[in-house]
Simulated scan of single mutants.
Amino acid sequence: MLRKLTRTDQLIHQFDTVLRTLVPHAAQPSRPSPAGDTRDETLDADARRHAAGLMRINHTGEVCAQALYQGQGMTAQLADVRTQMEQAAQEEIDHLAWCDARLVELDGRTSYLNPLFYAASFGIGAVAGAVGDRVSLGFVNATEEQVGKHLDDHLEKLPMGDRRSRAILEQMREDEAHHARWALEAGGKRFPAPVKFGMSLMSKVMTQSVYRL
């Protein structure tokens, strides 16, 4: 019989998750990278720098997603919702690790702003979860829709020869679409257009700042 986690156990788990999310190269994926043995075409310095900027944005997006799911999972009211949040968070760890590894290949780095975005996203997730599972799940759906749009945009902006980044983003897009569908099927509330527009503006602030920082 499994021992019920105490409050101390949960805090230790949360701290471990923070470290695995924010410390470069600490996240360990449960699935192999979609890039596999895919080989890039020749990328010049400008193309590599541009690809690294895009992948840095995607890495920070996964930092935010990880924090969001952790915050929501901590305050979710229904046990099955918490379980689904934890599963989605594990898939986001895969994305985090894949993007991190790709940044290394591109001689890039993760964003200096990650701790700030993690803290903000965790707080938003915790509040959404505390308000109620329908709102929390609705926030997941709206967030994943925004992420999907960013991934589509980045797939168009990637250098043509960057096949490894492309393979990673295509798998991420598939996973995020699955998360968005699950959130609605689990009872998530559809957010109105003005709320989604506000979320889109906040997302643009993140992408524009993280591309270089």
Results as ranks from 00 to 15, higher is better:
140 V>R: 11
40 D>G: 13
176 E>Y: 02
18 V>W: 01
154 H>I: 13
197 F>W: 14
153 D>W: 14
78 L>F: 05
176 E>K: 07
12 I>S: 02
54 L>Q: 10
60 T>S: 03
130 A>L: 14
17 T>S: 03
115 P>D: 05
205 V>D: 11
149 K>V: 10
45 A>I: 06
198 G>V: 13
94 D>L: 04
83 T>G: 05
118 Y>D: 02
166 R>G: 07
128 A>V: 11
108 G>N: 02
212 R>Y: 09
170 E>Q: 09
11 L>I: 05
157 K>P: 07
43 L>Y: 07
108 G>E: 01
84 Q>W: 09
156 E>D: 14
67 A>Q: 09
200 S>N: 07
93 I>T: 03
3 R>C: 01
89 A>T: 04
65 A>H: 10
5 L>W: 02
206 M>E: 11
119 A>E: 04
61 G>H: 06
153 D>F: 15
140 V>Q: 12
143 T>M: 15
2 L>P: 01
198 G>Y: 07
114 N>G: 04
36 G>K: 00
158 L>K: 14
77 Q>G: 07
184 L>V: 06
209 S>D: 13
10 Q>P: 00
189 K>N: 02
6 T>S: 00
56 R>D: 06
172 M>D: 05
95 H>V: 04
128 A>G: 14
56 R>E: 10
78 L>Y: 01
34 P>I: 06
208 Q>K: 12
186 A>H: 03
212 R>I: 08
174 E>W: 09
51 A>T: 06
61 G>N: 15
178 H>M: 13
160 M>S: 10
154 H>N: 15
211 Y>I: 11
98 W>M: 01
182 W>Q: 14
39 R>K: 11
64 C>V: 13
145 E>Y: 02
124 I>W: 07
11 L>M: 06
173 R>Q: 09
188 G>Q: 01
125 G>S: 04
66 Q>P: 01
206 M>S: 13
187 G>R: 03
67 A>S: 02
88 A>L: 14
47 A>Y: 04
62 E>D: 07
190 R>P: 02
177 A>Q: 14
204 K>S: 13
176 E>P: 04
65 A>Y: 10
120 A>C: 08
94 D>W: 00
35 A>H: 12
182 W>E: 14
123 G>D: 09
140 V>C: 14
158 L>P: 10
28 Q>P: 00
74 M>A: 08
180 A>K: 13
92 E>K: 04
24 P>T: 06
20 R>S: 11
27 A>S: 06
190 R>Q: 05
82 R>A: 12
163 R>Y: 05
107 D>Y: 00
135 V>S: 04
90 Q>I: 08
112 Y>S: 01
25 H>Y: 09
2 L>K: 00
50 H>G: 10
128 A>M: 12
128 A>P: 14
213 L>I: 12
83 T>H: 05
145 E>G: 15
10 Q>F: 01
183 A>M: 10
120 A>W: 05
135 V>A: 03
145 E>C: 06
108 G>V: 05
149 K>R: 10
17 T>Q: 05
111 S>N: 04
114 N>Q: 00
109 R>Y: 02
9 D>S: 02
190 R>V: 12
11 L>E: 02
134 R>E: 00
131 V>S: 09
72 Q>K: 10
64 C>G: 12
8 T>I: 00
196 K>F: 03
140 V>N: 11
167 A>T: 09
184 L>E: 11
174 E>L: 02
